[in-house]
């Protein structure tokens, strides 16, 4: 079991969706920390600790939307999984509607989990709660990723 707080990076362009996800995350796991960036370019800069993100911590879990401005989610995933220092960070895609092709392409790029945002409020709440609980409590990351 993980005792130290888990740091989430949320990559989401839709402000309302980001707010909903962060509300749900903070409600269920108050010790967790969350940062949000709103496009693929910012996500890559954050992970590389460039420019304004120079002091940002390395996230323990990345929640990644697929439809993102500038650099798309699949491209960001590709960058993460091809980078030796980033590839061990559990990356979960959280999209509005996912077709089979996106799912296949995400798994080809070694995504750790693929989730679709439920429309139902209770489903959305329980999914974010489970997601948070699973990755911050049950999951045992490798030493390098800690």
């Amino acid at each position: 079991m993980n005792s130290k707080p888990t740091h989430f990076l949320l990559v989401e362009d839709d402000d309302a969706h980001a707010e909903l996800t962060m509300l749900a995350l903070s409600e269920h796991q108050s010790t967790n920390t969350i940062d949000r960036v709103s496009d693929g370019e910012q996500a890559v800069a954050y992970l590389r600790q460039q420019d304004e993100y120079v002091d940002k911590p390395r996230p323990d879990v990345i929640i990644l939307d697929l439809k993102l401005p500038k650099i798309g989610g699949l491209e960001v995933l590709d960058i993460i999984k091809k980078n030796d220092s980033l590839k061990n960070i559990p990356t979960v895609t959280l999209t509005t509607s996912a077709n089979e092709k996106d799912r296949a392409m995400a798994y080809e790029r070694n995504v750790n989990s693929f989730l679709t945002k439920p429309i139902d409020f209770d489903d959305f709440q329980s999914m974010i709660r489970d997601l948070s609980f699973y990755w911050s409590v049950w999951n045992q990351p490798p030493v390098t990723a800690a």
Binding site: A16, H17, L20, T96, K117, D120, F121, D122, F124
Partner: peptide
Amino acid sequence: VTIQGFLGY
């Protein structure tokens, strides 16, 4: 998703 989510809250 937005409308349903905030309606829930």
